[in-house]
Write a protein that binds this DNA or RNA. Structure first.
Length: 518
RNA sequence: GGCGGUGUAGCUCAGCCGGUUAGAGCGACGGUUUCAUAAGCCGUAGGUCCCCAGUUCAAGUCUGGGCACCGCCA
């Protein structure tokens, strides 16, 4: 049995439509999942929707729908989007599903039994319009900022998880296991959040049903439902099989979470302490990425910075969008999205460097070698250099992908593309072909190019799967991506069989033109 | 107000524990080639490494102060 490995996207809140931020998270997770699958690991990849809570209940009511109908409708839209974009998730989980409800109740019960939960009565200023207690930040001159009304003093009783008792443990964990939250900047932020005097305290994990009914009932008090974050976070474990599926712990402890920096606190503080309080094991790591700034074009303020992935896919092709996000964003830092820059990058990398290499190689193979992978002669210095470049690329891609550094991984991969282009120019097969005595050299050159393209396609498969599949198909080794093992098979040489038919085909990545907005 | 981050060529960024003339990719410009998606290849262009002070034989790289932007908290 191969080694388990799991990855989760954030559990997206059932609200609106996916934009570039969600798409980026999902694409990174998909790329990671595809790579680990190709590395022969037993991969589980989960994404899904967080469907409970006040906001969903309110939105449903505004639409004249039941919460069930509303959340089902929105969830379908999201799932359809991921399907259209070819995201290879293993499960699209919804927090309204029965197994999740069981998981939440079991975990809440475990905390209750462990004495981690306390019932407390408190008083605060409640805004009827907001349907929640306000903090100072929400008010101006004693009025709710949103509703400009005075909040009522109100008493309420709720269940609290004694979260602050676990801060020392968490700080200690982050010292001993610095890789638990990556990159390090976010680990430091979490340490700052739980430092003495930072203000973070215990976590309210319930809502009285009279105020909110759209939630999972607390197992020890039917008058209350779970606070939405407490409910939502547990989805990651539900998907791994908690509590009853045999062997869930193994998968769970190999599970890596991928999130945006906006939800660092729930994932970096709430989640590990909740698990610790319930006496449950932790996932393997938390990987935190930055946000996309939208650089060009006027973006309507009311719509916000909405980049609709389907619209981009329609205009430019999803794989180019995907390539751009993975190549352009330094993991952990903010990135800048602009269609103009995307077009520029994609043309330079995918069309000019890679697409053209494939195109010239296959064209010459067709013209000079009857359209089959030729029988190579002796390998010289330049051929050995390409072979070394492939081995280097395979090793570097592996290292960077495992560290979530997709940008550096693609950079390393394109060094192989460049090396191969330089190699062709050095050998000049279009000249050599005119000299009958150099026939063997031509065959060796084109064999080497095909072999390099095979490595490139394999390494590229997790990033742009469709294009990589097309490349392999044209090289006469369709479906190889499904059987190959990374990184070893991308570094392997002399694996192509002479005589295999190749197909020239159309441009793999036609050059893009910037589409003008209407 | 507190804590943290970021500030390096037009753009996006590398530069680890301080050490030869500060790097890469893209773009720009010039040359060359024709197998190829007006692609490839070769070369060039020159940036006060945010500012000031300090430590050091030596500082983008360490220390202190300042400025700008961002994040978290209050």
């Amino acid at each position: 049995m191969s080694r388990p490995w799991a990855i989760t996207t954030p559990i997206y809140y059932v609200n609106g439509l996916p934009h570039i931020g969600h798409t980026y998270s999902t694409v990174v997770a998909d790329t990671m999942a595809r790579y680990h699958r190709m590395a022969g690991e037993d991969v589980y990849f989960q994404t899904g929707m967080d469907e409970h809570g006040e906001k969903a209940e309110t939105a449903a009511a505004e639409n004249g729908e039941t919460p069930e109908a509303y959340t089902t409708r929105i969830a379908r839209t999201w799932q359809t989007t991921w399907d259209k974009l070819g995201i290879s998730y293993d499960r699209f989980i919804r927090t309204t599903e029965p197994d999740h409800k069981i998981a939440v109740q079991r975990l809440a019960q475990a905390q209750w039994d462990a004495g981690q939960i306390e019932f407390r009565e408190y008083e605060g200023l409640y805004c009827v319009g907001c349907e929640r207690f306000l903090t100072e930040r929400d008010m101006e001159d004693g009025l709710c900022k949103d509703h400009e009304t005075a909040p009522d003093p109100r008493r309420e009783a709720n269940y609290f998880f004694k979260m602050s008792e676990h801060f020392a443990w968490l700080a200690d964990l982050l010292e001993k296991q610095p890789d638990f939250i990556q990159p390090a900047r976010y680990r430091n932020e979490v340490l700052a959040m739980i430092r003495e005097g930072s203000g973070l305290d215990d976590l309210c994990i319930s809502r009285p049903k009279e105020r909110l009914s759209w939630g999972i009932e607390l197992p020890f008090d039917p008058d209350y439902v779970c606070y939405v974050w407490f409910d939502a976070l547990i989805n990651y474990m539900t998907g791994c099989g908690y509590p009853d599926q045999p062997g869930w712990e193994e998968r769970w402890q190999a599970c890596e979470h991928l999130i945006g920096k906006d939800i660092l606190k729930p994932h970096g503080v709430y989640w590990p302490t909740i698990l610790h309080g319930a006496g449950l094991p932790l996932p393997k790591a938390l990987h935190v990425h930055g946000h996309w700034q939208i650089a060009d074009r006027k973006v309507s303020k009311s719509l916000g910075n909405l980049i609709d992935p389907l619209r981009i896919a329609e205009r430019y092709g999803f794989e180019t969008f995907r390539y751009f996000m993975l190549r352009e964003m330094s993991f952990g830092l903010d990135g800048s999205f602009s269609e103009a820059v995307m077009v520029e990058r994609v043309n330079a990398h995918l069309s000019n460097a890679l697409g053209n290499l494939l195109s010239r190689t296959l064209n010459m193979t067709e013209r000079y070698c009857e359209g089959v992978v030729p029988e190579p002669g002796e390998m010289g210095e330049p051929e050995a250099a390409v072979r070394t470049a492939a081995a280097t690329a395979a090793a570097e891609v592996d290292r960077h992908v495992r560290a979530y550094e997709s940008s550096q991984a693609l950079e390393a991969l394109f060094r192989l593309v460049d090396a191969t282009n330089k190699y062709v120019d050095l050998r000049e097969p279009w000249k050599a072909v005119k000299d009958p005595e150099r026939a063997e050299e031509v065959r060796t050159t084109l064999y080497t190019c095909c072999q390099a393209l095979r490595s490139i396609a394999l390494l590229l498969a997790p990033f742009v799967p469709d294009a990589a599949a097309t490349m392999l198909e044209r090289l006469g080794i369709a479906g190889l991506a499904e059987q190959a093992r990374l990184p070893a098979d991308a570094a392997a040489w002399d694996t192509l069989e002479a005589g295999t038919a190749t197909t020239k085909g159309d441009a793999l990545f036609p050059r893009l033109e910037l589409v003008a907005d209407e």
